[in-house]
Every structure is written in structure tokens, then in C-alpha cells.
């Protein structure tokens, strides 16, 4: 039952990420905007990440049937998603995230290097921090612009961050309900990101390669 739920949740993540990615790509082709190009990379990566994990679960359910997804497949999927989260944060200028001060570097970098006992641990910690950064930047944008749809995006990124945190924590309690809760939280986060996208009309848009800046 748990396997079926995780199959469905990862498939939803794949579809939602893909739709937002296609929307960003249409925007990039119509305007030539680098920001939209970064969002395209971000959401295609997130979508592919969910797809890889879904394939892992599907292969496990119908072919391998060992009762547990291959760890490397999960790590690969999460790694690809992390690239997507990085590009969202990068759009807000990632430079601000890494302080130049030697003192701060000496505190932050060891967290990346020594806190994780596995590659997945490290990747999840990076995802979490990058998503928190994106959430904070989006909240700041909301405070400046008071645009309600920005609040949906901030909530979405926040829920993705919470999902990553729970996923990270589920490594401590591998057989608990934490992992399905983590994936569900991430899906709700993606749906929150999708709400403002669904309100933008694509009527009259076309793939105009000659319309780039």
C-alpha cells in the first residue's frame, strides 16, 4: 500500500514539475529571458528527479519485488531534484547565500562536509538549505510587492523545504511514516507553486525563436 502511495505521489510530482517546466520553456522561447531559462532548467530537473524515483518504485513493484527501492536510484532522483532547487535559488542570486566572511565559511562548509553519513544525507541537506534560501527571498519579494500569488510560491518552496527536511529525518527512522509524509508535503508544495502558474493565460503564445532579445 505504501509503495502504491509513493508511486502515485512521485508521478504527481513528475507531472506538476513538467507542466511548470513547459510553461517556463514557452516563456523562454517567446521572450529569450535568462530568468525563464533558469526556471525551465529548475522545473525540468525537479520533474526528472521525481520521474527517476517513480521509475525506481515502479521497477521495484513490478520487476525486482525485493520490498525496498534501490538506494542509489533514490539518491540519483533526489540529486537531480536538488539541481532544480539550486536553479530556483540561483535565480534569486545565489551569491548572497554564501557569505564571503572566512568566519561564516568555517561554520557553514563543515556542515556540508561532515554532517552526512551518506551521499543522500548531504544532498538532502543542500536541498533543504537552498529551498529555505529561495523561500526567504520569495517572502521578501512578497513583502515588497504584496502580490498574493507570490505568497503561494513562497508557501510552495517552504513546503518543499519541509518535505526535504522530513525526508532527511526519515533516514534516521527508515521504516516510519516520515518518508510518505515527506513526499506528500513536497507534492502539496509543488501544487502550491502550480496555483499562480495555472492563472496565467497562454492564449496567443507561440514558440517564436526569432523573438529573442
Amino acid at each position: 500500500m505504501e509503495f502504491i502511495l509513493e508511486n502515485i505521489l512521485n508521478l504527481i510530482g513528475f507531472v506538476v514539475g513538467l507542466i511548470i517546466g513547459i510553461f517556463s520553456y514557452v516563456g523562454y522561447k517567446n521572450t529569450g529571458s535568462p530568468t525563464l531559462f533558469r526556471l525551465t532548467l529548475a522545473f525540468f530537473s525537479i520533474s526528472i528527479g521525481f520521474f527517476v524515483i517513480w521509475v525506481g518504485y515502479a521497477a521495484e513493484s513490478f520487476v525486482i519485488k525485493s520490498g525496498q527501492i534501490e538506494r542509489w536510484v533514490q539518491t540519483l532522483g533526489i540529486g537531480i531534484q536538488t539541481i532544480g532547487y539550486f536553479f530556483i535559488a540561483f535565480s534569486h542570486s545565489i551569491k548572497a547565500f554564501f557569505p564571503k566572511s572566512r568566519y561564516f565559511r568555517s561554520i557553514i562548509f563543515p556542515l556540508f562536509i561532515f554532517s552526512g553519513s551518506s551521499v543522500e544525507n548531504i544532498i538532502r541537506s543542500i536541498s533543504f538549505i537552498v529551498l529555505v534560501y529561495g523561500t526567504i527571498e520569495t517572502v521578501i519579494s512578497y513583502i515588497e510587492g504584496k502580490k498574493k500569488s507570490t505568497l503561494f510560491v513562497a508557501s510552495g518552496l517552504g513546503l518543499l523545504a519541509l518535505g526535504e527536511f522530513l525526508g532527511w529525518y526519515s533516514l534516521v527512522f527508515p521504516e516510519s511514516i516520515l518518508y510518505p509524509v515527506s513526499v506528500s508535503t513536497k507534492i502539496v508544495g509543488l501544487l502550491a507553486l502550480f496555483i499562480p502558474v495555472s492563472r496565467v493565460s497562454l492564449r496567443g503564445m507561440k514558440f517564436a525563436s526569432d523573438a529573442e532579445e
Binding site: 529571458s33 530568468t35 502558474v197 496567443g204 507561440k206 523573438a211
Partner: peptide, 24 residues
Amino acid sequence: SEGREFLNAYNTFNEFAQNFGLRI
């Protein structure tokens, strides 16, 4: 007329980017 189409796309996707707290 191409300019109008481009401006329409620009306004649409500028709003999309603004939802993410970004500018295109």
C-alpha cells in the same frame, strides 16, 4: 504586429516570473 505579440508574451511571463519574486 510582431512587437505587439512579443509585448503580450513579455507581460504574461513577466507576471509569471513576478510570482516567483523574480524579474525576466
